[in-house]
Design a binder for these strands. Structure first.
Lengths: 123, 123
DNA sequence: TTGTCAATTCAAGTTTTCTTGAATAGTTGA
DNA sequence: TCAACTATTCAAGAAAACTTGAATTGACAA
């Protein structure tokens, strides 16, 4: 993932409503959810939802498909994963302490004999 | 990490200059780098740098310490790690496809269906 | 065709974020 | 004390992002 795509994806993630959308849609898998149903679930106005869905899709974090009158939106797990990977890999150079703190890089952390992660917050 | 902190951290990451700062400072470890040296390295004006450094520190992604006339900034690996963890864990429910795509969830990806990795709050 | 429904686009206004030069605070050495 | 240096804060303006109601498009059913 290149610089500008990663930046677009991070900007897309950096909004409460859009984070809610990711949270809502991820468990729905590939089927996703129709815009109308999303709007109802989150209680937000249609144009506003459309704006945010479009931002996420533009950033490569969501996909959409039309079914009759409805448009179903689903997450693009690869888009999200690659964005995270960009931060960890390209920006943080796979820093072991970062990986340890994010809880998904045990190998790297262990391999490099990282100095004990200064007290984890929610353990 | 709670919702609003995660959002602040993501917003802080979603800017080119600030991503450059993370990229520059991560390899410097705890010692970090003085503001003036950072400004020179990245070629940006002092007030602008101050603005972005402060945004990152406010968001818990950087730390600072004064040494004589200088202020040294260094990354807070835990802040970055917990932010990533929030996205993967809280927003994406440790979705195996997301973890697989981000390349730091080998176990979960391999096991497909295991929700175990999240070093932060499992078992 | 006509009416209805689902979703998006438009336009306007508001708010937030970012950049820049000028001014300010704090530290050090002469 | 004074001058030099480092960094931050301030103020103003510019740019970008967000929200809202109205209008529009496209699909379907009667």
């Amino acid at each position: 993932m290149d610089r500008s795509k990663a930046l677009a994806a991070l900007s897309a993630l950096a909004h409460e409503t859009r984070l809610d959308l990711i949270r809502l849609l991820t468990p729905q898998g590939n089927e996703g959810m129709a815009a109308g149903q999303i709007a109802e679930t989150l209680g937000i106005a249609a144009p506003r939802l459309s704006f945010h869905l479009s931002a996420l899709e533009q950033a490569g974090l969501l996909r959409s498909r039309k079914v009759a009158r409805n448009v179903f939106y689903s997450v693009d797990p690869r888009g999200i994963g690659l964005t995270i990977s960009y931060v960890l890999n390209d920006c943080c150079c796979d820093n072991p302490e970062v990986l340890a703190a994010c809880g998904h890089g045990r190998d790297a952390a262990a391999d490099q004999g990282v100095v004990a992660v200064s007290g984890t917050e929610n353990t």
